[in-house]
Amino acid sequence: MQQAAILLAEEAADDWWEVEALYDLCFAPGRTALSSYRLREGVAPIAPLCLTARDQDGILAGAVRNWPVRIGAETAVLLGPIAVHPTRQGEGIAAFLMWRCLERAKTAGWPRIMLVGDAPYYSRFGFEKLENIAMPPPTNPDRVLGIALVEGAWDGITGEVTSMRD
């Protein structure tokens, strides 16, 4: 992918509905019923980690949002959703967004990131299956993945993932 052709920016308030439309296009209509959405309700996303990717004409090609969550007394970033417009898939935009999220989170001092996804895809970014971390049901435990941005950041962390509003 020619990264010069994609302009990365922090999501602005005016981008909200356009990003929501992209998520509606890319995911099943019932996406907001997923357990990860219950963790996001009533909680502000982590603004510096919510990114848009636009082409040189300003057309939205992809987006990612990130949210704070708790596991016991510890906090983590819950990455996602991440989406790329169907006409732009296969160009490396999702990977571009992912790498920038990881860089920005580390720079901001977040020690760990988790997500719900396919291990074969996300392992290339360093994500591994999290043992002893439980997302709200009906999440498949094999899809709960994490990455330590600081050495040992997941060591000793166990329990249920809960919302920051609780």
Rank of each mutant, 00 (worst) to 15 (best):
D14I: 04
D15K: 09
W16D: 15
W16V: 15
E18C: 01
E18Q: 14
V19P: 08
V19M: 11
A21P: 00
Y23C: 06
D24M: 01
L25S: 12
L25W: 00
L25Q: 13
L25T: 15
T32F: 08
L34R: 06
L34Q: 12
L34E: 04
S36Y: 02
Y37D: 14
Y37F: 13
R38H: 13
L39I: 00
G42K: 08
V43S: 06
V43R: 08
A44E: 15
P45Y: 09
P48F: 06
P48G: 05
C50W: 04
C50E: 06
L51G: 01
L51C: 10
T52N: 14
A53N: 08
R54S: 10
R54T: 12
I59A: 15
L60N: 11
G62D: 10
G62K: 05
G62Y: 04
G62F: 11
A63K: 01
A63V: 05
V64S: 07
V64I: 15
V64N: 01
W67V: 11
W67G: 09
V69F: 00
V69M: 09
V69S: 03
V69C: 10
R70N: 13
R70W: 12
I71M: 14
G72K: 02
G72Q: 08
A73C: 03
T75P: 03
A76T: 09
V77G: 03
L78M: 14
L78S: 11
L78A: 11
L78F: 09
L79T: 11
G80Y: 00
P81V: 10
I82K: 02
A83H: 03
A83K: 07
P86M: 03
R88I: 07
R88W: 06
R88Y: 12
Q89K: 07
Q89T: 10
G90W: 10
G90N: 11
E91D: 14
G92V: 07
I93Y: 05
A94V: 06
L97D: 04
M98Y: 06
R100V: 02
L102Q: 01
L102E: 08
L102H: 04
E103S: 13
R104L: 15
A105S: 14
K106P: 05
K106W: 01
T107R: 13
A108P: 09
G109Y: 08
G109N: 10
W110C: 01
P111D: 13
P111K: 03
P111H: 08
R112H: 07
M114A: 12
L115A: 04
V116T: 12
G117Y: 03
G117D: 10
A119Q: 13
A119W: 00
P120K: 03
Y122F: 05
S123C: 10
F125M: 05
G126V: 12
E128A: 14
E128L: 11
L130R: 06
L130P: 08
E131Y: 00
I133E: 04
I133A: 01
A134I: 02
M135I: 00
M135P: 02
P136M: 05
P136H: 02
P136S: 00
P137M: 09
P137W: 01
P138S: 00
N140V: 00
N140A: 13
P141C: 05
D142L: 11
R143N: 04
R143V: 01
V144K: 04
L145A: 06
I147N: 04
I147G: 02
A148F: 00
A148W: 03
V150Q: 15
V150D: 05
V150L: 11
V150E: 15
E151L: 10
G152L: 05
A153H: 09
D155I: 07
I157M: 09
I157T: 13
T158L: 07
